[in-house]
């Protein structure tokens, strides 16, 4: 047997041509999105979530994943497959989430992941939506009597490694000429234990997650104080792989559909009454005209399924975040004083 580089090269070239040909064939039959085709073939959307944060994604007593991230995933499943239940949640940690997305283990991430330039530039991912405008906050014990982050020079702070929080705190303390000692533990339960046991003076992460953590403490919630400073912008949203624009479009417009539905007051309960509406945008949204679904490579009823099965953005918020006592604030619709704004559907 002999292996000559030239013949090997020719073999690979041949294989490459074969692959290219078969890819073109797939393009002709499929939707033009490798991810959407894979999801359709599997009959299931695989969505990476945290699986450990109340209000975002946390299994309930029946083992059903609950939270704003979980429902945002379900909305994509409803849009892609017509059934919000055809979904599998994969819990990921802060340090393995991007690898899970890059390697194709999950189709997308809704994992309280902050949209940053570094992540879009280096990680091979794109942010398709912002389902929560958040910021880094600090939780301290009431007994410490700390009223402001500025009083925390020399403090020990519990943070999860590999997060944008980690970088935000380092920046903030540097700018304010303060020192701190980080305690970095990957496992969420362990880092929270470290804070509760007093190993750290403060626990820092997204303010929403801190509120959720405080809420989980039950009777002891009032022992903990959320400091007034929110030291960074943390827009949390969906992340998809680069190189599949059609899939990106679908994830993005699924989220916009929930916003548009809220603007028009279309909810999961009353969506059927809008089927006779004569407002053009509502008709396009519900798949009555315009072939919007076809443009995205899915059924024209995609947004109807999302609204009917999961609900509009306001319903998703009220179901998951309101019970924790977090006001909607900047997460409200643009015409109600918030930042949530969807481009027109036409």
């Amino acid at each position: 047997m002999m292996i000559r580089p030239t013949s090997a090269g020719a073999g690979f070239l041949f294989a490459g041509v074969l692959l290219a040909v078969s890819a073109t064939a797939a393009l002709a039959q499929g939707t033009g999105s490798a991810t959407l085709d894979a999801v359709a073939k599997r009959g299931q959307l695989v969505c990476g979530v945290a699986g450990s944060t109340a209000g975002f994604s946390l299994p309930d007593s029946q083992g059903v994943m609950r939270g704003i991230d979980a429902d945002s995933c379900r909305a994509v499943a409803a849009a892609a497959l017509g059934d919000a239940g055809k979904i599998r949640f994969v819990p990921t940690t802060t340090t393995n989430r991007f690898t899970a997305l890059q390697s194709g283990e999950v189709d997308m991430l809704y994992r309280s992941t902050t949209w940053t330039l570094g992540r879009e530039g280096n990680l091979g991912g794109l942010f398709a939506s912002i389902n929560f405008y958040d910021g880094t906050g600090f939780l301290v014990k009431k007994a410490t009597n700390v009223k402001s982050v500025k009083e925390m020079d020399g403090a020990t702070i519990c943070v999860q490694p590999g997060t944008s929080t980690e970088l935000a705190i380092a920046d903030y303390f540097r700018v304010n000429n303060l020192k701190f000692t980080p305690i970095l533990i990957q496992d969420l339960a362990e880092i929270q234990n470290a804070y509760l046991s007093g190993r750290c003076d403060a626990y820092s992460t997204d303010a929403s997650a801190l509120a959720a953590f405080r809420f989980q403490q039950g009777d002891k919630a009032t022992d903990h104080v959320l400091l007034p400073e929110i030291i960074s912008k943390e827009p949390l949203g969906a992340m998809v792989r680069k190189g599949d624009d059609k899939w990106f479009d679908l994830v993005r417009w699924t989220y916009f559909a929930t916003l548009i539905a809220e603007e028009y007051g279309i909810t999961s309960k009353n969506v059927d009454t809008f089927m006779s509406s004569n407002i053009p945008e509502i008709r396009r949204l519900l798949g009555l005209e315009g072939d919007m679904g076809k443009a995205l490579g899915v059924d024209n009823k995609w947004a109807y399924n999302v609204i009917k099965q999961v609900g509009n953005a306001g319903e998703i918020w009220d179901r998951n975040i309101t019970p924790m006592g977090i006001p909607r604030g900047i997460n409200n619709l643009w015409n109600k004083g918030g930042l949530q704004y969807a481009p027109p559907m036409r």
């Binding site: 802060t94 340090t95 991007f98 690898t99 890059q102 570094g118 992540r119 280096n122 990680l123 091979g124 490694p161 590999g162 980690e166 970088l167 305690i183 970095l184 533990i185 990957q186 496992d187 362990e190 880092i191 470290a194």
Partner: peptide, 23 residues
């Protein structure tokens, strides 16, 4: 060490690869 928050080479490399994306 990763489990108990001591920053050994694996812990720091994990954070690094997560911040830079270069697994």
């Amino acid at each position: 060490a990763v489990a108990i928050g001591y920053q050994d080479v694996v812990s720091i490399a994990n954070t690094t690869l997560n911040q830079t994306g270069q697994a």
